[in-house]
Simulated scan of single mutants.
Amino acid sequence: MSGTTMVFLIVLVSVGFGVISDLYSKYLKANKLSGLNKQESDQLKNEIAQLKDRVAVLEKIVTDEGYQVDKEIKSL
């Protein structure tokens, strides 16, 4: 094996291990973040469900005939 081939292989192996190491560290970081995102996602889903319930109650109040009459009286 010539010296040039040996240097080429050493550089190739070094760069290959560097790339693999970088990809693995990004993989671990992504897994760590996905766990945090799951907790936040569950919390946000609960908050959205609560807000939907509140909007439903508000819609019921606004579409109530008594509310409409009261609004018309106040506008006079």
Rank of each mutant, 00 (worst) to 15 (best):
K45I: 15
S75W: 04
E40A: 10
V69Y: 01
V15S: 10
S2E: 10
K32F: 14
K29D: 15
M6S: 08
V57G: 02
S14N: 09
L76C: 01
M1E: 00
I61D: 13
V69M: 00
L51T: 12
D64M: 02
V62F: 06
V57F: 03
K38T: 09
Q43K: 14
F8W: 08
V11A: 14
L33P: 01
V55D: 06
R54Y: 05
M6R: 12
T5I: 12
G3H: 05
K60F: 03
N37G: 06
S34E: 14
D64T: 04
L58N: 15
Q50E: 13
S75L: 10
I20A: 15
Y27H: 10
I73F: 00
Y67S: 10
D64P: 01
Q50P: 02
Q68A: 06
Q50D: 13
S14P: 00
E47P: 00
N46E: 08
L23Q: 14
S34G: 03
I20Q: 09
K52M: 07
T4H: 00
T63V: 05
G3C: 00
K74T: 02
K26P: 04
V15D: 04
K29W: 07
L28V: 09
S14H: 00
I10Y: 08
V19P: 01
F17T: 08
L33E: 15
V13S: 07
S21H: 10
A49N: 05
R54N: 09
K29A: 15
Q68P: 00
S25F: 10
A56K: 13
Y27C: 07
D42H: 11
N31S: 12
I10Q: 14
V7Q: 11
G3M: 06
S21K: 13
D70M: 06
G66Y: 00
L36H: 07
M1Y: 02
S41K: 12
G16H: 06
E59D: 14
V62S: 09
S2G: 15
I48A: 11
E47S: 12
S21F: 15
Y27K: 12
S34C: 06
K60E: 14
K71A: 06
T4K: 01
L12E: 08
D22H: 11
F17S: 12
S41H: 07
D53S: 11
Y67F: 13
N46F: 01
E47Y: 03
D22S: 05
F17V: 13
A49E: 06
L36W: 01
G3R: 07
Y67A: 00
